[in-house]
Design a binder for these strands. Structure first.
Lengths: 252, 252
DNA sequence: GGGGCGGAAATTGCATGCAAGCACTCATGG
DNA sequence: CCATGAGTGCTTGCATGCAATTTCCGCCCC
């Protein structure tokens, strides 16, 4: 009753994902709940502004309130939820302003990652990046957006890993959550597919050449382009009334 | 008994801070515990590697395990604690590598902040920055390190605020925790005092002139210098055996 | 008809109880 | 003397109970 105006009770939506308690060890509930809820938020099943009723989540996930409460706290830290004292946590809004703000930060972070990665990169890492690039091309050719999506995230994260800076990776992971959320929210993306692949090629080339400045710049351009397009798409969608579309399948 | 080898039981240390339950409203315990523990970690009272026994913290802070557990989870997210399944959380190490990794990220982030701030800055904001700058000079002249320290943090944070990018501010706050921790850990800093003040002057000038590139560069230089000096200091201290010095007062 | 108010239900925040897992001790054997 | 293993106590992880606060509903008054 509390969660958004969706006619479908969240029950089904959560239940659809998985039952969460598969022969679990002791310390697995908290993490499991976090993952579950995070996915629901990032993919947009839980619409911005929706209230999270602890009891309801407990019932759906078949766990007690303790791990649920801890999970909610975690997601608040991640910025996916907003907390009000003595009130239900609500899914954080996805203002255009906020997504716009992401552009500069993510661009800068990924640019740094590119610069650092180009310096450290090993032959093995080059091959791994290349592999992901071609996985993306394959998914593109087959028109498999979800697969492309996943490979794309892996591609970018791999570059950050190669940068070999744990703090950078930590920040990137935090930001990636928000970027993914924005991406899921704007389900028109394919326009940039081809361009994105060309840009990826450029990034790969720069990394292979160990050209730090070029890799950084290529990544900055690529990320900025992608996120700007995303903002444009979102601002176009802004006309849709804040009602959440029922059963808004993630992408495909 | 569990918390580090310090002869002084943590009891006194925590008790010294404050009793935590001053006519509290309902939703204040969790935040209070987080703040308390965070301060203890950042200031180094809780040495890296120290185990956090839930029961003990409960007794010292006179709250039950629930808020303490939630606080610990929060601090794990912040990267101040490390979690081991079914084991006590431990204070995160402060590797030299980790602090070194901070340099590039914080430098980049503050550089971005400078660039953005220079574009948006209002006359009022310029005045506020200037005020903080002169507060620092005053504290410097009076040789009041803690006051300088506080004003310094406010100065930097203010610039990020002026940048008017909520995501940037969020990331900065997260990073600032780690920077402060490293700073507290190396208690020799005054060498850079004068230089730092000159650099601050340069930053202030660039911001006043609304010269984006210059402000960004000035901040990058300043932050890099500061953190590099910090790393140098830490790597010098590295000789001290990993034993934590008893009653290592934060700064002076 | 609209707005303010009172009370009850519901919800969060905190405290506590119980079970599983780890660490530590101490005895034993090589 | 050192390594090994069983037993015990402590610690975390989860479930649940209780109190304070919010919210929601109906009612009354204007």
């Amino acid at each position: 009753m509390t969660l958004s105006q969706t006619p479908t009770p969240l029950a089904t939506l959560i239940a659809r994902t998985q039952a969460l308690d598969g022969g679990r060890k002791k310390g697995a509930l908290h993490g499991g709940v976090v993952t579950q809820l995070r996915n629901l938020i990032v993919t947009g099943v839980l619409a911005p502004g929706a209230k999270l009723n602890e009891r309801e989540i407990c019932e759906q996930l078949a766990v007690s309130r303790t791990p649920v409460r801890e999970a909610i706290k975690t997601l608040i830290q991640d910025g996916l939820l907003r907390a009000l004292p003595n009130q239900s946590a609500v899914v954080a809004e996805l203002d255009l302003d906020h997504v716009t703000a992401l552009i500069d930060v993510v661009t800068t972070i990924e640019g740094l990652a590119g610069e650092l990665a180009a310096r450290n990169i090993s032959e093995e890492a080059i091959a791994e990046i290349g592999l992901l690039h071609y996985r993306m091309r394959l998914h593109h050719a087959r028109d498999e957006l979800p697969g492309y999506f996943e490979a794309n995230t892996a591609f970018h994260r791999k570059i950050v890993e190669i940068a070999a800076n744990p703090v950078l990776l930590w920040v990137w992971d935090l930001l990636a959550l928000r970027v993914d959320r924005a991406r899921y929210s704007s389900n028109l993306w394919p326009t940039r597919w081809k361009t994105a692949i060309e840009e990826h090629q450029g990034i790969l080339d720069a990394l292979s050449a160990r050209d730090s400045a070029k890799a950084g710049e290529a990544l900055r351009q690529h990320v900025r382009n992608g996120l700007s397009g995303l903002v444009a798409a979102l601002s176009g969608e802004q006309k849709d009334p804040p009602q959440n579309r029922p059963d808004d399948k993630p992408i495909g």
